[in-house]
Amino acid sequence: MPKILAFAGSTRRDSWNRKLIRVATHAARAAGGEVTLIDLADYPLPLMDEDLEARDGLPANAQRLKALFKAHDALLIASPEYNSSIPPLLKNTLDWVSREWQGESGLVPYQNKVAALLAASPGQFGGMRMLPHLRQVLNTLGVLVLPGQFSLPHADQAFDDADGVPMLKAPARLHDLVLELVNTAQMLSAAAK
Rank of each mutant, 00 (worst) to 15 (best):
L75F: 00
S121I: 06
A74P: 06
Q111V: 06
L65V: 11
S105M: 11
T140F: 09
V97G: 02
L117N: 07
S79V: 05
T93S: 14
L76S: 07
Q111C: 09
K91D: 14
L94G: 01
Q102E: 15
H133P: 00
M130C: 06
L138C: 05
H72E: 13
L75R: 03
K91E: 14
P122C: 11
S84M: 07
S84H: 12
P132D: 02
K70P: 00
L90R: 07
P122Q: 12
L90Q: 09
A120T: 09
I77L: 13
M130F: 01
A120P: 04
G127L: 04
S105P: 10
L89M: 10
S98A: 15
S121A: 15
V108Y: 00
L117E: 08
G106R: 03
P132N: 03
D95Q: 08
E104H: 09
H72A: 12
G123W: 02
I86D: 01
L134K: 02
T93G: 10
T140V: 10
P88R: 12
S85W: 01
L89W: 09
S84N: 12
R64D: 12
T140K: 10
S98V: 07
L107W: 04
L138V: 04
H133M: 12
E104N: 13
N92F: 00
V108W: 02
G106T: 10
N139C: 13
A115D: 03
Q136R: 11
P80H: 10
G103M: 06
L68G: 11
E104M: 03
P88A: 15
R129E: 04
S85V: 00
R99M: 13
A67I: 03
F125M: 03
M130P: 00
M128F: 04
W101A: 14
S98Q: 09
L131Q: 14
R99K: 15
Q111Y: 06
S98K: 08
A78R: 12
R129D: 03
Q136L: 15
R135H: 05
A119T: 08
G123A: 08
D95V: 08
G127V: 04
M128I: 13
Q124H: 10
K113W: 05
R129A: 05
S85M: 03
A116H: 08
P109E: 03
R135N: 10
N92C: 04
L138Y: 01
A78H: 13
A120C: 15
E81D: 04
L94S: 09
A62G: 05
V114T: 14
S79I: 07
T140C: 13
L65M: 13
L94Q: 05
K91T: 12
A62S: 04
Y82W: 13
Q136A: 14
Q136V: 07
F69L: 12
P109A: 04
A71M: 01
K91C: 11
K66I: 08
P109K: 09
W101N: 14
P109W: 00
S79R: 03
K70V: 15
N83T: 01
N92I: 08
R129G: 01
F69N: 02
